[in-house]
Nucleic acid binder design. Structure first.
Length: 921
DNA sequence: GGCTCACTCTTGGTG
DNA sequence: AGAGTGAGCC
């Protein structure tokens, strides 16, 4: 591969701090990947290993791509990728969580991550303890439960991540936020801000952790640096101050997440804030035609306060007149229909991905429609559907608009005897009707069986606690009673697959609610849940953006400009360029500025969204296009705000490359053929485990989102595991724990969020016994440990990447290497599965260290039993080919049910929505 | 040119 | 909720 001079200089700069200003399409991923491999190459003799390099990306997806690129280059230049699993490539959040949940920090092992939905549920459930209703507005009123919880969430994250000076915030607001943080600690939760802020606090104050980072992190690379917020910058600063060489990569013109706290000042002032900074500008665009480059540049150059630079074209695509259009239509439907027609026109158009490569015909997946707001997608999606153009995304259907979810919602109204305002009470009769509409295909008898089941449950609710009354239990049992099966329900327009997808989403919703409200008794839990369903849920779970996580069908992408960050297509549509839409108008309502003064937040403007911010966003949209760029607009006459043209549209017409009417000359045709994009498929071992037990169970859980009912003892196995992690890690550091330490270990690690007093007591006893027994039997082994919690990553054929973590690697008395996995009574996993897992780990160990393992061991902690066997190369090979086959099946969504009732069905939580129990069992 | 009043209402990653 | 916008009026 040839590099430009500035690319080559950036790659070669490894002994100074480096700032790379990378224009759109300038090949920055290639450059930072190559630079990382260069570091490994040239610093090998001074002992630099992959584990000494850390790279932060903005998303997990970007991390996957970067990792893949680094690995390819590693093979190319070093001939091996040994140890590469220890080169951290990932988000700042995941890195922080790792810091908090790995030795020498043990405190956060028992914490779990709170999503935004769960955070909001927690705040509302504990409206006083979370500080919500004690937060004063600047005008003297206070925030209200339910109504203001979202603003409160925003406030909390701005206070934590926005670089806010504490003394400029009203005292009562500060105290409220502290109460919230106290609540999180009490419940052992980390929210997304907490992950970062706790990690920064630990790095600042924990001597052992500082030592660890100082010794391990020698090079830090930060991608998308323009979107880093003040708290993230604080972490970067700490790591750099501990001696890491720093390389930041970004483009100030592509800052689009300022409303979430990104501070573009970080990149603008980087060279002034860090010592010995070399700045390299990557100006050449290797993605787009000169028409696109020139047009986009002309747009963004209207912004003041940019870093000086000039994006230049390399004529990556030929420009032909008519490639770039700016069109006006009479109404939105004409606009949408034109787009659908143009897509068919583009299909099969002759195209070269690179000018020295053979041509192919464009297909649907080469095109994207980028909108400013989801609302705009609806009429376009409608036109695509009418024209039978396959599309992905833009799924505008709200979960609660579907008949199946409405029926389930009524079920819970019925159970709680809840009458939603403006409706009549839910009766058995009306329920029968809704269930019939929600689940077409069910017989009358099925629905009667379901109703009978529900009436039984309704009678038990006032009687109090009962494991059969857990919401998720009742939900799954109801579906079983109704004999709901994917292949039994649905009509032509609404397939069983779609219905199950929505039911799976609802299962997740139940999980979210139930985990936060777990300790309510049924007679308050059910009414609360009904109230939540009536008032909040639709708002908390807005619309379904179909995530077909594993599949890659040939379809046009419909998405927002924000989501399109980092992607590119041969053809891009940017419709709906109306005034007040793009640039978008600021929203009113109660905001954080009613709670804290603007001067409390540095660069407070960034949260508000300015015209410059919108222009950057527009620039991002334009630069996604390689060759074809079709911008358009149409007035919406009955919307006073949106009947005029966007000024951005007018700006476009200034470019000489833009035509105002569609010449519609037909380009030469070729057979449509998808671009060979071999994106890696990452799978974790725990996902794989579900797949091997039953592919359909995997589908229900990971494709549809069904969740198991909670178990009171949940967390016991994890707690034991955490305690062992400390025992092993400390042993490696030379502090082998003794039996006298057991009560403390249990005290520190045992966390059972759903236990009652009885379960808790038994668990303490069980955990102490297991640990004592372990230390007694294996205490002398603890001086011969190699690694605890070693991450492995196996790149297999077909781009399948399996990752997992080895509990323990130890050296035996006979000086063999043993890979150890610990099980507790909670694990119902068959031994066969564990052996499979260990063979994968043995292969991973070999990959990571270049050394072979001799033995694999399974320790059952509660029983004290050990299963040991020798590692055999032939067995590993056949295991790995089974894993590759599994990966292929997952990629093709080939996830069938077992042919008949079998061992896996016995222990399966989902069997009730899969098949009927045979009478003989 | 300035004032009033009716109308409208975004973006989403992170384990 | 309440801020920003734009039509209509003087």
């Amino acid at each position: 591969m040839d590099y430009t001079q500035s690319q080559a200089r950036a790659i070669a700069t490894i002994d100074r701090n480096l700032q790379i200003i990378a224009c759109a399409g300038s090949g920055k991923t290639q450059v930072i990947s190559r630079r990382i491999v260069k570091i490994l190459e040239s610093k090998k003799d001074s002992g630099i290993k992959p584990a000494n390099i850390v790279a932060f990306t903005f998303t997990e997806k970007a991390a996957g791509e970067l990792k893949d690129r680094i690995q390819r280059l590693c093979f190319e230049h070093l001939g091996t990728d040994e140890g590469l699993a220890e080169l951290y490539v990932g988000t700042i959040h995941a890195y922080c969580l790792n810091l908090l949940q790995q030795p020498p920090v043990y405190h956060y092992l028992k914490y779990s991550v709170l999503t935004e939905v769960q955070q909001r549920l927690l705040i509302d459930r504990n409206s006083k303890k979370s500080g919500l209703t004690e937060t004063p507005l600047l005008d003297g009123r206070t925030l209200t439960r339910w109504v203001d919880s979202r603003v409160y969430q925003t406030l909390l994250s701005v206070l934590e991540e926005g670089g806010v000076k504490a003394r400029t915030v009203p005292t009562a607001v500060r105290e409220a936020a502290e109460k919230y943080r106290g609540l999180l600690d009490e419940k052992r939760y980390l929210d997304y801000s907490g992950m970062l802020s706790r990690a920064v606090a630990e790095v600042k104050s924990n001597r052992k952790l500082r030592e660890k980072i100082k010794n391990s992190v020698r090079y830090l690379v930060v991608d998308e640096y323009q979107d880093v917020n003040p708290l993230q910058e604080a972490l970067i600063r700490e790591i750099a101050d501990l001696g890491a060489n720093l390389c930041v990569v970004g483009d100030d013109d592509q800052t689009i997440y300022q409303w979430r706290g990104s501070d573009v000042q970080n990149i603008i002032t980087f060279a002034d804030r860090y010592p010995r900074v070399k700045t390299e500008r990557l100006n050449e665009n290797f993605r787009s035609s000169k028409g696109i480059v020139f047009t986009a540049r002309q747009v963004v150059e209207q912004n003041p306060d940019r870093l000086s630079k000039k994006m230049e074209s390399t004529d990556a695509q030929p420009f032909e007149r008519g490639d770039i259009l700016a069109l006006q239509f009479a109404d939105i439907h004409k606009e949408a229909r034109w787009i659908a027609r143009k897509i068919e026109w583009l299909k099969g158009a002759k195209y070269r991905d690179q000018q020295d490569k053979p041509a192919r015909g464009l297909t649907y997946s080469d095109m994207a429609i980028l909108v400013r707001a989801w609302k705009d997608a609806a009429p376009i999606v409608e036109a695509l559907r009418d024209a039978e153009v396959p599309y992905l995304g833009g799924g505008m259907k709200s979960l609660f608009d579907t008949a199946e979810v409405q029926a389930i919602r009524e079920v819970f109204y019925f159970l709680a005897s809840h009458t939603p305002s403006g409706c009549s009470a839910t009766s058995a009769v009306s329920l029968r009707k809704s269930l019939g509409e929600g689940f077409p295909g069910l017989r009358k008898e099925d629905i009667s069986a379901g109703l009978k089941f529900l009436q039984g449950i309704r009678k038990r609710i006032p009687l109090g606690n009962d494991n059969q009354l857990f919401l998720q239990r009742v939900y799954l049992d109801l579906l079983e009673a109704l004999s709901v099966r994917e292949e039994r329900v649905g009509t032509k327009g609404r397939t069983g697959e779609v219905i199950f997808f929505n039911l799976g989403k609802f299962s997740q919703l139940i999980s979210d609610f139930e985990r936060i409200h777990f300790h309510s008794s049924p007679d308050s839990l059910y009414p609360n849940f009904a109230g939540f369903l009536e008032h909040q849920a639709a708002d908390y779970y807005p619309e379904e953006t179909e995530e077909t996580a594993h599949a890659r069908p040939d379809a046009v992408m419909v998405m927002t400009v924000h989501q399109a960050k980092g992607m590119q297509w041969p053809a891009v549509f940017v419709p709906c360029l109306r005034a007040n839409r793009f640039p978008s108008r600021r929203q009113g309502g109660r905001t954080i500025w009613n709670i804290i003064p603007e001067k409390a937040v540095p660069n407070a403007d960034r949260y508000k969204g300015t015209k410059e911010d919108e222009r950057r966003l527009f620039y991002v949209a334009l630069t996604r296009a390689e060759k074809y760029l079709f911008c358009s607009w149409a007035p919406i006459p009955d919307n006073q705000q949106q009947r005029r043209v966007s000024e951005f549209f007018t700006d476009l017409t200034q470019s000489e490359f833009v035509l105002g009417t569609d010449p519609s000359r037909l380009p030469p045709r070729l057979k449509p053929q998808a671009r060979v994009a071999d994106s890696p498929l990452p799978i974790t071992f725990s996902e794989l485990r579900y797949f091997f037990q039953c592919p359909y169970d995997f589908k229900l859980r990971f494709l549809y989102g069904f969740d198991s009912p909670v178990n009171r003892a949940l967390g016991f196995g994890k707690s034991l595991h955490d305690a062992l992690c400390e025992i092993h890690a400390e042993s490696i550091r030379g502090n082998v724990p003794s039996i006298a330490d057991v009560p403390n270990l249990v005290q520190n690690h045992l966390h059972l969020p759903f236990a009652n007093e009885e379960v808790r007591k038994n668990s303490v006893r069980g955990a102490e016994k297991a640990l004592r027994q372990y230390l007694k039997k294996h205490g002398e082994h603890l001086t011969r440990l190699e690694h605890a919690e070693k991450t492995i990553e196996l790149k297999l054929a077909e781009g399948i990447v399996v990752s997992g973590r080895i509990d323990l690697i130890r050296r035996t008395d006979t000086n063999e290497i043993a890979i150890v996995d610990f099980k507790s009574g909670e694990d119902t996993q068959p031994q066969e599965m564990t052996r499979l897992q260990l063979q994968v780990y043995a292969a991973g160990y070999q990959k990571a260290t270049g050394k072979d393992a001799d033995l694999v061991e399974i320790h059952n902690l509660e029983v004290g039993h050990i299963h040991r066997e020798q590692v055999k190369e032939s067995v590993i090979q056949s295991t790995l080919s089974r894993v590759v086959d599994a990966g292929k099946q997952i990629r093709d969504l080939n996830l069938p049910k077992h042919a008949k009732w079998c061992d896996a069905c016995h222990s399966c939580d989902m069997v009730g929505i899969c098949r009927t129990k045979p009478v003989s069992v």
